[in-house]
Design a binder for these strands. Structure first.
Lengths: 140, 140
DNA sequence: ATAAACTATGAAGCACACTTCAAGTCAATA
DNA sequence: TATTGACTTGAAGTGTGCTTCATAGTTTAT
């Protein structure tokens, strides 16, 4: 059993965020001590980590909420959850693909700057010329 | 020269967004026709594409603004821009790394669901058991 | 010439994911 | 016992990145 503060320390989230997640039904109801204090179990902590994983993948709160709701409903919702997780996976893959093409462009820009810094003539290059050269190299 | 609507069609952004970017100084001042209508040049379009690349990498508007400001100032800011682009690159890499670990977890969850769907016993599995099994497999 | 379509502006509004505040309750310690 | 620190709640506030609105001027097609 962990206090609010401990749960926050373990997960790296703020107590406010943990309450927010609970309000938004991303977490199951957290048990309370005599007189209203939250008592996070190890299972709650694991659940929070699962949510952190989903948030890390930029899955919106509302989607997580829908998923969690199916999870709590249990076994008969398995196929729906399967479909949701598949969609999440596709979404993550496309995010990675986007970032990777941005990375390629950024790296070529960096290489361009490196060359420019080696040149004693780099003072003469205007921004117009710069992005012309840059855009010449790589394209979205 | 492109009208607002044409620029929007070419870039896939809305005219409102293009005006917003201009207001926020992500774009240089766009030329105007006799009587106030914007006239986007090919260079403007390329500039917009550069910004789209940065946005795709989740670079905040304020960072783009700083970068663009250096770019407009020109040659003497080259080293600062070099540093910024390096930072952007590191940021993109860490975003990719995060997404990739989320992807691995998501894939193992998917595999778990696939096994469960093959089992005729899957009705009996509660959500508590499910995430126990899931969390047993992979960890953040 | 008149309606439809396009463009302009500043200001307000919105969705998202939290964060902070106000006002009070509970627990431990000096 | 009094104060300090942690915890509670609902409500309001914040930052980001747009989007929509109200109002008005311009261009084009019929």
């Amino acid at each position: 059993m962990y206090s609010a503060k401990e749960a926050a320390e373990i997960t790296g989230l703020s107590t406010a965020t943990l309450r927010y997640y609970e309000r938004e039904k991303l977490l199951p109801k957290i048990a309370r001590s005599s007189s209203k204090y939250r008592q996070y179990t190890d299972e709650d902590i694991e659940w929070i980590k699962m949510i952190q994983c989903m948030r890390m993948a930029n899955i919106p709160i509302q989607s997580i909420k829908r998923y969690v709701s199916l999870l709590i409903q249990g076994g008969t919702t398995l196929e729906q959850r399967y479909i949701m997780v598949q969609e999440h996976m596709e979404d993550i893959k496309s995010q990675i693909a986007n970032l990777q093409s941005a990375l390629v462009l950024t790296q070529s820009k960096l290489a361009f700057y490196e060359n420019l810094l080696k040149e004693p003539m780099h003072q003469n290059i205007t921004y117009v010329e710069e992005w012309k050269m840059f855009n010449h190299g790589g394209r979205l």
